[in-house]
């Protein structure tokens, strides 16, 4: 994960950053999904894009009607075998860097059609590489927002320069989420809320 080694080191009114951080920030703040819904999960995706949940808060509200302009493919719904080749073609048409969210039970592993379905792909990762799986049948819009934030974390971990040798796998590694719900509390400070008590 990119360490903010230079950001915020000086006082206010002074902005310092690196090209890498600036690019990642720009990318993760404008993930444009593709207008692409296959089944009932698309209804929840529309709800996440509408005003109550407001996907546009994260810069991802511009649903593009063309895969050429999209960064993110939210596979929302049951992928049938006939649709699988179309999904793959749409994925190939998207420009790099591109990301895929597998939304719902059907796209993560076949869902209710897992065992007996003759027509459903048993998970969309048999068709396209999936970055984030969002479970649920269908997932709540909050779950989709969480998946989008995981995509943002993944973008934040990307590096411009590929390091050869030495450090091993550092490139495009999925970083530790910065909002996983885990709260670290320093021992010597006052607790702000009750739920932050780790060792009462």
């Amino acid at each position: 994960m990119t360490k903010p080694w230079i950001e915020g080191r000086f006082e206010e009114n002074m902005i310092l950053t690196t090209v890498e951080q600036a690019m990642n920030w720009a990318r993760q703040s404008s993930i444009w999904p593709m207008t692409f819904g296959l089944a009932c999960c698309a209804i929840e995706m529309m709800a996440a894009g509408a005003s109550r949940y407001d996907l546009d808060r994260f810069g991802a509200g511009a649903f593009r009607a063309s895969p050429r302009q999209a960064d993110l493919m939210i596979v929302a719904g049951t992928v049938t075998y006939k649709m699988a080749s179309r999904v793959r073609r749409l994925y190939n048409m998207m420009p790099d860097p591109k990301f895929v969210i597998a939304m719902g039970a059907c796209t993560t592993g076949g869902g209710p059609y897992f065992k007996w379905g003759y027509h459903v792909v048993k998970g969309v990762d048999l068709v396209v590489p999936v970055d984030v799986y969002v479970p649920g049948c269908p997932p709540r819009p909050e779950s989709l927002l969480e998946g989008l934030m995981r995509i943002q974390d993944k973008i934040q971990g990307q590096k411009i320069a590929k390091r050869t040798g030495g450090f091993g796998k550092v490139d495009d590694e999925l970083p530790v989420p910065h909002h996983s719900g885990y709260v670290t509390v320093p021992d010597d400070s006052m607790l702000v809320f009750d739920h932050q008590k780790v060792n009462p």
Binding site: Y81, K82, A84, S85, G109, G110, F114, K115, W116, G117, Y118, H119, K122, G123, D125, L126, V127, V128, P129
Partner: peptide
């Protein structure tokens, strides 16, 4: 509605219920 390379007629009652197999039969991309 079925893909072009499909060979059976799946709403016939003698079509096997197992379909095209489960997830572990396919490679993950």
């Amino acid at each position: 509605v079925m893909p072009e390379e499909f060979t059976a007629h799946p709403l016939r009652k003698d079509y096997p219920m197992q379909g095209r197999g489960e997830r572990h039969n396919f490679p993950i991309i």
